[in-house]
Design a protein around this nucleic acid. Structure first.
Length: 920
RNA sequence: GGGCCGGUGGUCCAGCGGUGAAGACGCCGCGCUUACAACGCGGAGGUCGGCGGUUCGACUCCGCCCCGGCCCA
């Protein structure tokens, strides 16, 4: 990509061969643009210009509204993917529109250190070089992680900048910068002293590979094939038989303290209270009853291992009479400890399971094994099977934090878009487990706690002193763990504005207005930010949350590194430009739905921009001089209909764009502008106006056309700018324009242009006439260069007037030699090809021959006949006449008349063609 | 097992109680007509997943079912 200032001014290139040819004939005049544009130089130039002008710094003027938003800080773990680009495009669209409206607009970028995730990536990288991260000295390990961070940060920043997002880089933040350290510490200390953080031994999700606890959210559950092993626990008193127990984890048998059955299970009524011998050990254990046991599962009896399963733990707690459970695993989930037989020592879970099955078989206690599909939890980061493990960790109490959030969302203080995610949100907030925030890794914020080795007191203060505040001892040890990354991220919306200091930014830009993100982090981040917002600032962190859909590949698959179907946005930008990428991400699939993205989508975006480019290119010679924003054209009453029509269409489009921005729905804005510019302006309005623009229709006509075209294009560029900022900025500058940048030019008010429904209605028969005549040409294979005669018979005088007024445009656009209006009741020309429409009939001369049977007419007749049958059936229904609103009945009646009349006329046309010359 | 979302021409999707069901891509035919072939013009193609119900009227509301996807346990 070229640096700013590369290449000739405005990125002009020598035109293509065609342009040269035309230029040589002197048919192109005035300032020109090349027929295609190169995004690279244009985008680089305007990004530099915006940076230089400080466009993204908020301009706060007296009385201005505020609009602030935070960029979800990407994880430094990886690089940006299309999902980031989608979210950032949605955000930027809304941000730029607000900026143009004159709001004090602020969008703050940042980066997340992604503690555990990053450490895992660095570990993996070092492993390829044969180095174990854990064996490096702490200093060196941190250095390696910082190295990684620098590289990835550079890449992420390059990607983000290439997108042209109007972020205020002067406020760029990092979750490990001094401000984040300060905020994180403050949050921890406050929660601790409020009794909302506690330390305790709990059953946690333990990742034996990374040797750390992880939170519930970091465990990914999936169905996996396993094996259910049925084991007989013999009676301790030597009686024959025993208890048959089904388990997927026979290796934990050394941790068993009981066998449990459901209290209502008749099969085991007599067994409860007896004792069994735990296989492979010399211990015995009681048979107990507990309602947590599912009598339908396996044999209905459960081995109870309180240190290795959450349900067993629950049962253990309810039965204090049981022997204390012993730990049988070390931190790497290898068997260890006094309760484990020597030949199992040091085995990992899988090996131990295998050996346990063997030994049980040898002991004659293995009843049977059967395949069993069940849900297995794996660590999100290492993919290792999670080991439920008793461990001393730090936790945040979620109940008190969640309550105000649920209330706020219910009250509409925070709105979630689309609101179909509300049930999911509520359900999760409801059953929250306390949040385990300590991690046994080194990369992250240290837990701000000192342990007194003398008296055991925990020092939890903002500025810890050298001595224990309880006993005065200097023998303090810093807590060895670090905090979950999200414990910093959840403070983001206010931490980046300076919290806990009472800064001006915090005062002005908090709460933020909008958060755009993927719903995959709804619980990890969004919900927790809400909790932190209310807890620490007493206010919501944002008023609206917008969840984008997932970008999929053309085949509908999720994008992933594994499938190799996740393109680097930077490559796409280099290939087609940031604007093309941005447009294709929001159009045509709604940004809150999962949608496919691929070559076709990207080309579609690029094609639209080329179309826009050429539209302006065409308009350029007509734009005239000037350094002001064009005013609304003043059209006299006798000005051509198409001018009024396109202004009315513009008005509707501008209103739709406004509504779309207010609803955070860039797709709606893109759809409206795409249809308007391509089909209304380019395909219709420009084609209608070419004659007037050329001056052949005289000075006033040319003036009206030029003023209207200039107005419509200039305003459209403003409306389109938030979505595709670079191209629009370039084109806006190519046209006469006021000083400054489009990026900070005022947002147009739709009401500038008059609403004009009459013009819209009047234009319909004109457009329809042209289409039908072209249709006959195509069906009858009239040569492209032939200019036949045509006749129209209007259904009413108003239509006749409009068709007469637009006579010239119809002749030109349908390529006719002449066009005559037939008076009512007059005979149609014999042998002509024809069509029948609601507004009337049209006839096209077929030079040198007579029209044959028309398939199109027959199809039309068939279609109308079906409609008529349906309409008549409706009218024949007494219930319809009795209960439908009168206007609906009247509408059906007039529709019936209209259909009959039209069918009658088609029959005339068809018989007319069958016998040329027959009078109607 | 529980919950949520979706099922509309070949593909992707608008519409969400009175419609002749919109558009984009793809397809067919014609065309370099003084911006654009990355284009223009015309056209074909749909029993709106299935079955019931509510209603004068259902793509639209309700129930059940089938299919696909996601989330939680």
């Amino acid at each position: 990509m070229g640096a700013p200032g590369d290449g000739p001014p405005r990125g002009r290139r020598a035109g293509g061969a065609r342009t040269d040819r035309l230029a040589a004939r002197g048919r192109v005049s005035g300032p020109t643009l090349p027929p295609r544009f190169e995004a690279g130089p244009i985008e680089a130039r305007w990004q530099a210009a915006w940076a230089e002008a400080g466009v993204a710094h908020p301009r706060d003027r007296p009385g201005a509204s505020m609009f602030s938003i935070v960029l979800p800080p990407p994880n430094v773990t990886g690089v940006l993917h299309l999902g980031h680009m989608l979210g950032d495009t949605v955000s930027d669209t809304v941000v730029r529109a607000h900026r143009m409206r004159g709001d004090a607009t602020l969008w703050v970028p940042g980066l997340d250190h992604a503690g555990l995730a990053t450490q895992v990536e660095v570990r993996r990288r070092l492993q390829k070089q044969g180095v174990r991260l854990e064996e490096l000295p702490r200093e060196e390990a941190i250095h390696q992680v910082e190295l990684w961070t620098k590289e990835h940060e550079a890449r992420i920043l390059e990607q983000t900048r290439a997108g042209g997002f109007s972020l205020d880089w002067d406020r760029y933040r990092y979750t490990l910068d001094p401000g984040s350290v300060r905020a994180t510490r403050e949050a921890f200390v406050r929660l601790y002293h409020a009794g909302l953080i506690y330390r305790g031994e709990r059953m946690v999700n333990w990742d034996p590979r990374l040797r750390t606890a992880v939170s519930d959210l970091e465990v990914v559950h999936a169905e996996e094939e396993g094996e259910l092993v049925y084991v007989r626990y013999p009676w301790a008193d030597g009686a024959p038989g025993g208890m048959e127990v089904a388990t997927v984890r026979p290796e934990t048998i050394f941790g068993d303290v009981a066998v449990a059955v459901h209290p209502g299970d008749e099969r085991y009524r007599a067994a409860v209270g007896r004792a069994v011998r735990v296989p492979l050990t010399d211990r015995t254990a009681p048979v107990i009853a507990d309602p947590l046991v599912d009598p339908a599962f396996g044999a209905g009896a459960l081995k109870v291992t309180p240190r290795h399963d959450p349900i067993d733990r629950e049962i253990g707690l309810r039965h204090p009479e049981l022997a204390p459970a012993v730990e049988i695993f070390d931190a790497g989930a290898r068997l260890t400890g006094a309760g484990v037989p020597p030949d199992f020592h040091g085995l990992d879970r899988a090996a131990a399971r295998q050996r346990a099955v063997e030994r049980l078989g040898e002991a004659g206690l293995l009843v049977r094994r059967e395949p069993h599909r069940h849900s297995v939890g794996r660590s999100e980061r290492s993919d290792e099977v999670i080991e439920p493990r008793m461990s001393t960790q730090w936790f945040v109490r979620m109940g008190p934090l969640a309550a105000p959030v649920v209330a706020a969302v219910k009250a509409g203080e925070i709105r979630i878009h689309p609101d179909r995610w509300l049930p999911t949100f509520y359900r999760w907030m409801d059953g929250l487990q306390d949040w385990c925030i300590s991690r046994q890794v080194f990369w992250g914020h240290p837990i701000p706690v000192d342990h007194c080795r003398q008296c055991g007191h925990l020092e939890v203060t903002l500025a810890p002193g050298p001595r224990c505040s309880q006993c005065g001892s200097h023998d303090l040890a810093a807590d060895p763990d670090v905090l979950d990354t999200w414990f910093t991220s959840w403070l983001w919306p206010f931490a980046i504005l300076g919290w806990p200091e009472p800064t001006a930014d915090l005062d002005r830009y908090y709460p933020t207005r909008l958060l755009v993100t993927g719903r995959d982090i709804m619980f990890f981040w969004v919900a927790r930010m809400m909790m932190a917002g209310y807890q620490f600032t007493g206010r919501p962190p944002f008023s609206d949350v917008y969840f984008t859909g997932t970008v999929r590949d053309e085949r509908g698959r999720k994008m992933s590194k594994h499938l190799g179907n996740s393109p680097d946005p930077l490559d796409l930008i280099r290939e087609r430009g940031a604007d093309a990428l941005r447009f294709s991400l929001v159009f045509p699939t709604p940004t809150d739905e999962d949608g496919p993205f691929g070559r076709a989508a990207l080309d579609g975006g690029r094609n639209f921009l080329t179309k826009l480019w050429n539209l302006v290119r065409f308009a350029l010679p007509h734009a005239g001089p000037g350094d002001a924003s064009p005013p609304v054209p003043e059209l006299p009453a006798d000005a051509a209909l198409e001018h009024r029509w396109i202004l009315a269409r513009y008005r509707r489009t501008a209103e739709e764009v406004d509504a779309a921005i207010a609803a955070f729905a860039p797709t709606r804005a893109a759809t409206a502008l795409h249809g308007f510019l391509w089909h209304d302006v380019a395909d219709r309005y420009v084609e209608f106006s070419k004659e007037a623009l050329s001056g052949r229709l005289g000075e006033p006509a040319q003036r009206h056309a030029r003023a209207t075209l200039r107005f419509v294009l200039e305003r459209s560029l403003r409306l389109l700018h938030p979505i595709v900022p670079h191209v629009t900025e370039e084109l806006w500058h190519a046209l006469p324009h006021p000083d400054g940048l489009l990026a900070t030019a005022p947002w147009p008010s739709p009401t500038e242009a008059p609403a004009d429904p009459e013009a819209e209605v009047a234009m319909e028969p004109v457009l329809e006439t042209i289409r039908l005549l072209r249709n006959v040409r195509a069906e009858e294979a009239v040569p492209a260069d032939a200019t036949p005669r045509a006749w129209l018979r209007a259904a009413n005088p108003e239509v006749a007037r409009v068709l007469a007024a637009e006579h010239g445009a119809i002749v030109r656009l349908a390529k006719l030699s002449s066009l005559a209006l037939l008076p009512p009741g007059s005979d149609p020309p014999p042998g002509a090809g024809s069509r029948v429409a609601p507004f009337g009939e049209c006839f096209l001369e077929l030079p040198g021959r007579v029209a044959g049977p028309s398939a199109a007419l027959e199809r039309e007749r068939e279609r109308l006949a079906q409609l008529l049958t349906k309409t008549q059936a409706r009218l024949a229904d007494v219930g319809f006449r009795a209960r439908a609103p009168p206007e609906v009945v009247a509408e059906a009646e007039s529709k019936e008349r209209e259909l009959r009349e039209r069918i009658r006329r088609i029959d005339e046309h068809m018989s007319g063609t069958a016998s040329p010359g027959a009078a109607a």
